[in-house]
Design a binder for these strands. Sequence first.
DNA 1: AAAATAGTGAGCAGAGTGCCCTATTCAGGC
DNA 2: GCCTGAATAGGGCACTCTGCTCACTATTTT
Lengths: 158, 158
Amino acid sequence: MFCTMYSLDKTDTKLLQALSADPRSTFVALADTLGLSRNTVQARMKRLEDSGAFLGFDRRINPAALGYPLTAFIEVHVQQKRLAQIVIDLALIPEIVQAHGMSGQADLLVRVVCTDAADLFRIDGTILACDGVERTETSLAMGEVIPYRLTPLLDRRG
Amino acid sequence: MFCTMYSLDKTDTKLLQALSADPRSTFVALADTLGLSRNTVQARMKRLEDSGAFLGFDRRINPAALGYPLTAFIEVHVQQKRLAQIVIDLALIPEIVQAHGMSGQADLLVRVVCTDAADLFRIDGTILACDGVERTETSLAMGEVIPYRLTPLLDRRG
DNA sequence: AAAATAGTGAGCAGAGTGCCCTATTCAGGC
DNA sequence: GCCTGAATAGGGCACTCTGCTCACTATTTT
């Protein structure tokens, strides 16, 4: 399913940095910035895409703009042998924007967006109602004190 | 700092859906798909950008492609009055890709990427070494059982 | 030495962009 | 009913960018 995981070199890293700085910049502009030829940039970008280096566009959409200003993380404890079915059930809840299977206290860490506290309460109830879910622990995110970033890691390779 | 938060209507939603389906599609293609004129699409896209509906490009970069296949969530308990300084200190750790201030058990929920378990252990140590950090609880993400998505929410408005 | 790999430079037809202007429709306020 | 402002459509124009191909040059691998 995944293509051969090809490891990025410094030029790829610089490409990603330039893209982070300006996601809309054209191949010509990138080539110019990096001092490469347009052909090279196009070839590398294609390889990056093919290798799965880019995730879905969803991630760039601000949930707040969609009317979901609140984010919460819900730790979910489940009957482990029902895990597979539970994931399927949870996937039906639209407010769940992401879920990780975890090693640690909880079995699942679910990321939820919601309109307000009452909404969160309702969603939590929906999760609890799933067959095999035993317990949840909800924590509301008060703020994204470090906004998602990859630039420090990119810079380190640059 | 943020522009007037303008709430998205159905047409905006469809634009975002089309973009999710194909992040690279041109204005012409979008206009075609949605049955709108190119002018309209361009105007709406500009408004979406200006209103902060799009987050950084970072979020679309796959950390695994960068050589960080593992993700972990670390709950951090701190001396609350030192919180501000702690956030500054944590921001210096490149492997921390995101952090939320939380209401709940822990004060902070930190998302970390790492190369392997030993790397995670080291990073956890670095966090613990920050002045004011009292305790951490690390959970390794075994898998993203629900990959980040916003489409269910978009579809509901469509 | 031969072969694969990455990059460059040039060229070209077609598509897309940014920006302009005007006309139409429609909802809300007077 | 009338006016206004917002949203949209449609046309046009100069310019840029894209996708593609080809030939040539390093550089590295075998």
